[in-house]
Design a protein around this nucleic acid. Structure first.
Lengths: 170, 170
DNA sequence: CTTGGAAAGTCAACAAGACTGACATAAACT
DNA sequence: AGTTTATGTCAGTCTTGTTGACTTTCCAAG
């Protein structure tokens, strides 16, 4: 799936928008409150399993790229290995994640979701997708396009490539 | 756990978008990574003062509506009063926030930023505004409109009114 | 007027999850 | 053989969330 639709439109960026501090402040608050909504549904589900957002994120990214290494996961999640390790250990112990020794490089561990793990992943992402789908539908396609464009711009440039590349994984 | 989160918005939404799970997943990841970018700059500044995001949020909302009560702040921040209180106490001790006994109701405390508090508020919000302004400028005005529309839809309906009303404050 | 309940705020103790730092082990590389 | 890399672990700290218990203040019913 090609994702050139998010590519920056040439010329466009040189428009000198007049943005008042108040408009920007509203944008800031929208980010804050929308993110809260964004995490609210999965958080409720996670409580039933005594897991937190960290578990959710790990499960999400393992699902997106099954077999990724611990280092890759670390890198994309942006936490320390100690912090990730606690979460990962629980998930492996609970039988949601399978950690297999790498075939080429036996130092590495390749991470996979088990069937149970995939079930929880689906439950979590389904809740999140529902809200996202509703918001997208209510807002309309042009708005969705704008949403993507702005958010992409908000991501740290160094991360941006990584994220967009990673999203290409089938 | 009664939640009206699924209540329908009349009118706006009957567009029937085709949204693949993959498109939605991209939206989900954009939220995750953009939020990280969104908080990155203030986080760096906060380190210098040994404060965290909670302090930032408190300062932000006190600045937006000087003189608001602890309860109002509690409500908008969405944490427990005990959690807020710790943060607030530090800010008062450090001379960034002024907590005055309410004139009509002496149980209440009205919160104000001191001059020092306003200085830090500015420093933090300026960093955040810079990133927001850049993202907005690069994305263009239509995109900004879409961004706002989608994010507004993502907020919990119960909160939505509160937030939008609150944004009217001069 | 009194009194009992509710509301606003504070204090204490605990838990999750982030962090740093030090160290261990195994495998790969030079 | 010695070094670097990938991962895991232990210990300790910090921020920020939680619940429970408490004080002060207000208000309204008796």
């Amino acid at each position: 799936m090609q994702r050139n639709r998010l590519a920056r439109q040439p010329g466009r960026s040189e428009q000198l928008l007049f943005l008042t501090d108040d408009q920007l402040r509203q944008g800031i608050e929208l980010m804050f409150f929308a993110y809260r909504g964004f995490t609210a549904d999965p958080d409720l589900i996670l409580e039933n399993y005594a897991y937190g957002r960290a578990h959710h994120r790990a499960i999400h990214f393992i699902n997106r790229k099954q077999g990724l290494t611990v280092n890759e996961l670390l890198d994309i999640m942006g936490v320390t290995k100690q912090s990730l390790n606690r979460v990962l250990r629980q998930l492996v112990e609970d039988g949601l994640v399978d950690s297999r020794v790498g075939k080429q490089d036996r130092r590495q561990r390749n991470l996979y979701l088990t069937e149970t793990g995939e079930t929880l992943e689906w439950e979590l992402s389904d809740a999140q997708r529902k809200r996202m789908r509703k918001a997208f539908s209510n807002a309309g396609p042009e708005a969705v396009h704008g949403f993507r464009t702005v958010l992409e711009q908000m991501i740290d440039p160094s991360l941006r490539e990584k994220v967009l590349n990673a999203a290409d994984v089938p």
